[in-house]
Simulated assay, not measured.
Amino acid sequence: MTTRLTGRRIFVTGGGSGIGAAVAHRIAGEGAAVAVTDARKEAAESIAESIRAAGGTAVAVHCDVADEQSVAAAVDTAALELAGLDGVVTCAGITRAGLAHELSLDDWDLAIRVNLTGTFLPLRATIPHLLRAGGGSIVTVGSVASLVAPNFNTPAYEASKGGVLQLTRSIALGYAEQGIRANCLCPGVVSTGLAANTAALHGTIQVRTRSDAIEATPLGRKAAPDEMATVTAFLLSDEASFITGAAIAADGGLTAH
């Protein structure tokens, strides 16, 4: 594994499981000091401890990305513990189901609040630290749903992830001259605990797809979270120095149809 992120201090939301946990492990393994944040503090602590046990640097911080005060406190704590911030990865997210005429306003608001506002709030709070550091790299986690609509009963999820991509592009344009890059990772089908984690915090849902998602993926399988972490580490690094405002579809070819 490389040391291309040595000296970087990176704030990761949703770091307690799934893609977020894989990202935290990967970037710590490449030399970054990581603030592992999650609404489930015990999950964040578990990941941070496993990183430290492997010789990396990590702190665990509680962060409810949908709550402005929680985000502000988490960013302040992380910046203090790590003596600043150079990068941000926003992995926290949920999904809610229901055709548009069936979807409750509460479920719509929750999906938008966690997925879209829950990307905006951490970025708004961390960008001043990146500016003080002279620049940095942001990776938001969107979805193939940022680009297409693979599910037909998750309109709030699709809308929120489309918004994440456009938010990322706006930030890329707004801060390019200050040395901040921002890119949106758009995963396809990934083996994560998203449904289980969503159920634990917000209740169970039933997501329906137009066709079997794996069958629709040309590579014929789900991705492992580590495969998303590898792309994220690259985007955070100087090896991606001329990439900003991009939607990176790490989807096994799903959106190539």
Rank of each mutant, 00 (worst) to 15 (best):
Ala233His: 00
Ile112Ala: 04
Leu116Asn: 00
Gly252Arg: 01
Val23Gln: 03
Lys161Cys: 02
Glu102Cys: 08
Asp38Leu: 11
Thr209Met: 09
Val36Gln: 13
Glu102Tyr: 09
Val141Ala: 03
Leu105Tyr: 12
Thr230Ser: 15
Ala53Tyr: 00
Val12Phe: 14
Ala223Val: 05
Arg96Gly: 01
Ala145Cys: 10
Thr37Leu: 04
Val75Ile: 10
Pro225Ala: 13
Leu82Met: 03
Ala32Gln: 07
Arg132Tyr: 06
Ala196Ile: 12
Gly93Ile: 07
Cys186Arg: 02
Val59Asp: 15
Gly84Trp: 01
Gly220Ile: 04
Gly118Met: 04
Glu215Ala: 13
Leu80Ser: 09
Gln166His: 10
Ala111Pro: 00
Thr140Leu: 12
Ala33Trp: 01
Lys161Thr: 08
Leu219Gln: 12
Gly7Met: 02
Thr77Ala: 15
Arg208Glu: 15
Tyr175Ala: 02
Arg96Lys: 15
Arg221Val: 00
Pro128Met: 05
Gly84Phe: 01
Leu194Ser: 07
Thr117Tyr: 13
Val164Met: 07
Arg9His: 14
Arg8Gln: 13
Glu227Arg: 11
Val61Tyr: 04
Ala44Ile: 04
Leu110Gly: 12
Met1Phe: 03
Ala249Arg: 11
Tyr157Pro: 12
Thr3Phe: 04
Gly253Lys: 04
Gly142Cys: 10
Leu201Tyr: 07
Ala199Lys: 02
Glu239Tyr: 03
Glu177Cys: 03
Pro128Thr: 05
Leu147Glu: 14
Ile171Trp: 00
Ser237Trp: 13
Ala39Lys: 11
Ala97Ile: 00
Val12Pro: 13
